Simulated scan of single mutants.
Amino acid sequence: MAQQDGKVAWVTGAGSGIGEAAARALAASGVTVVLSGRRPEALQLVADAIAAAGGIAHVQVADVTDSDAVQRVAAWTRDTLGRIDILVNNAGSNIQARSFAALTPAGVDQVIGANLSAAFYCVTAVLPIMRAQGDGVLIHTGSWAGRHPSPVSGAAYSAAKQGMMVMSQLLNEEECVNGIRSCVICPAETATPILDKRPVKVSDESRARMLQPDDLGDLIRYVALLPAHVCMNEVVISPTWNRMFRAVLDRE
């Protein structure tokens, strides 16, 4: 893939998992990356690894559920690096008490805030910058659960990810005239740290059969670096050994 020197990407949830993989993949293609998340030590490790491989990464610690923090990072990136070409809207979380029997109002706020409100905060922060450029790509880490709601992920998480899909569609409808493209990527089970919050422990054997962070990192890079006249609206991706399909088969 051709080098993309001069482009700038802001990656949220960049300290581990899909965000880290996306940041590494983009940096390997010459994109300058801005890494956001709540854990400065984890972000710095990713930045150091990117620098060691010859890439450029900047750490901007932020909790993206805080709209003021989101605006601060967007403004810093614009003022320091001059542009934002790519937003990887990846930050998200889930809780163990996710069934309706256990769900609380606080839990609802936590899940919706981390997975949907935060995504909107980041979008609204970068859109003015991208409109001024007449160009930009927004990539959102959705979920298989947004397309196929499941008690495994829980109602709040599934609803938030479905809301992200609606957000992305309407971004394309409204912002296509400004040269802005939006893509929601909906992965099925992926071997990332969020699995540790599952009520039922996921075995190492099952994790090995899942999608891996680098699978998504490579996909995000591909979408981000498509020609400006191409919009990849939505991608649904799963492991070949899909435990969601197995669950259906086991019931038959």
Results as ranks from 00 to 15, higher is better:
residue 127 L to K: 00
residue 92 G to A: 08
residue 62 A to R: 01
residue 55 G to T: 00
residue 233 N to S: 15
residue 146 G to C: 09
residue 176 C to S: 15
residue 83 R to W: 00
residue 210 M to Q: 15
residue 10 W to D: 08
residue 134 G to W: 13
residue 30 G to E: 09
residue 233 N to A: 15
residue 238 S to P: 04
residue 166 V to E: 04
residue 136 G to D: 14
residue 94 N to V: 05
residue 151 P to V: 01
residue 89 N to A: 12
residue 92 G to I: 02
residue 179 G to C: 15
residue 221 R to W: 06
residue 82 G to H: 09
residue 87 L to K: 00
residue 43 L to A: 05
residue 55 G to E: 07
residue 194 I to N: 03
residue 44 Q to W: 12
residue 145 A to Q: 06
residue 93 S to I: 01
residue 41 E to S: 11
residue 170 L to T: 15
residue 69 A to K: 12
residue 153 S to G: 11
residue 170 L to C: 12
residue 50 I to N: 03
residue 38 R to F: 00
residue 104 T to W: 15
residue 181 R to I: 02
residue 7 K to P: 02
residue 95 I to E: 05
residue 119 A to D: 03
residue 161 K to N: 05
residue 171 L to Y: 00
residue 224 A to D: 13
residue 148 H to K: 08
residue 156 A to H: 14
residue 158 S to C: 12
residue 117 S to E: 07
residue 47 A to K: 13
residue 39 R to L: 00
residue 30 G to Q: 03
residue 194 I to Q: 07
residue 207 R to K: 15
residue 182 S to V: 06
residue 147 R to H: 04
residue 52 A to V: 04
residue 93 S to K: 01
residue 115 N to W: 02
residue 84 I to D: 10
residue 37 G to V: 08
residue 122 C to E: 05
residue 82 G to E: 00
residue 246 R to K: 08
residue 27 A to R: 08
residue 155 A to Y: 03
residue 216 L to C: 04
residue 202 V to C: 07
residue 195 L to T: 02
residue 189 E to D: 13
residue 232 M to A: 06
residue 25 A to D: 14
residue 100 F to Y: 15
residue 234 E to T: 09
residue 240 T to A: 12
residue 146 G to L: 12
residue 132 A to P: 14
residue 214 D to S: 14
residue 221 R to A: 11
residue 200 V to Y: 13
